[in-house]
Write a protein that binds this DNA or RNA. Structure first.
Lengths: 113, 113
DNA sequence: TTTTATACCTAAGTTACTTATGTATGTAAG
DNA sequence: CTTACATACATAAGTAACTTAGGTATAAAA
């Protein structure tokens, strides 16, 4: 993948899912976590990530907590209650999409008419 | 789904896959086949389909054969040799994407740290 | 005769990315 | 010691791939 445009539309869902799992994360950490979980297959670009985080925050799905670690700034994000609700819905939608795509790809790979 | 933008980037792969399965299809038939295979979950819009077909043809992946059935025009598309090759690659890429996404969604749904 | 289905088409608008840049600190390498 | 790489944030401009909205035309159903 890496440069495949296939994941378009799923970035915010990925972010919400990671935050639901990890509690709180900062931007750079998210990019590294995604790389790790996907074995470098999916590289979240900073130019995509930060605007996405800002939008999720503006929509009231995320809260920010700024910390200074090693004299470097970190902006930790965590889900609001609304964000938790939204993450559930978005995850369900993404999972439905994935199985829909599976259904599209399977026929004739097997033995159907 | 229906209106979800999640499938962005996968339309041409879907077209190639269907043609690999069915041999030849016309545009309208493709929209109906996708609806049927996905139980109305995924609705290919004509505004997306026809430009995609034209592009695939321009790229030398599809051949056209025009037929008149019931006094109505049909443009049947089928894979060229190049199109067959491309469909294999695109399908592999899409399948890799799907399992990558699965990998992203699984952790913490289970019992991992 | 109006709607629905079949069958094609394109232009304009939108969205969500990529690419390219920029700032700033800390660490490793040469 | 200075250059490159990693960490950590950010935005602006460009692009791709859709959606929306319109158009033409025939046939069947209401």
């Amino acid at each position: 993948m890496s440069n495949s445009k296939l994941y378009k539309g799923s970035l915010s869902t990925i972010i919400l899912k990671l935050l639901a799992d990890e509690g709180k994360m900062y931007g750079y950490e998210i990019t590294q976590k995604v790389k790790q979980l996907t074995q470098d297959e999916l590289q979240i670009k900073e130019g995509a990530l930060y605007p996405a985080l800002h939008k999720l925050e503006a929509d009231g799905l995320l809260d920010i907590e700024v910390k200074k670690v090693d004299n470097r700034l970190r902006k930790y994000y965590k889900l609001t209650e609304k964000g938790t609700q939204e993450s559930i819905g978005k995850l369900a939608e993404l999972e439905r999409y994935l199985s829909t795509m599976q259904a599209l790809l399977l026929p004739k790979t097997k033995l159907s008419s």
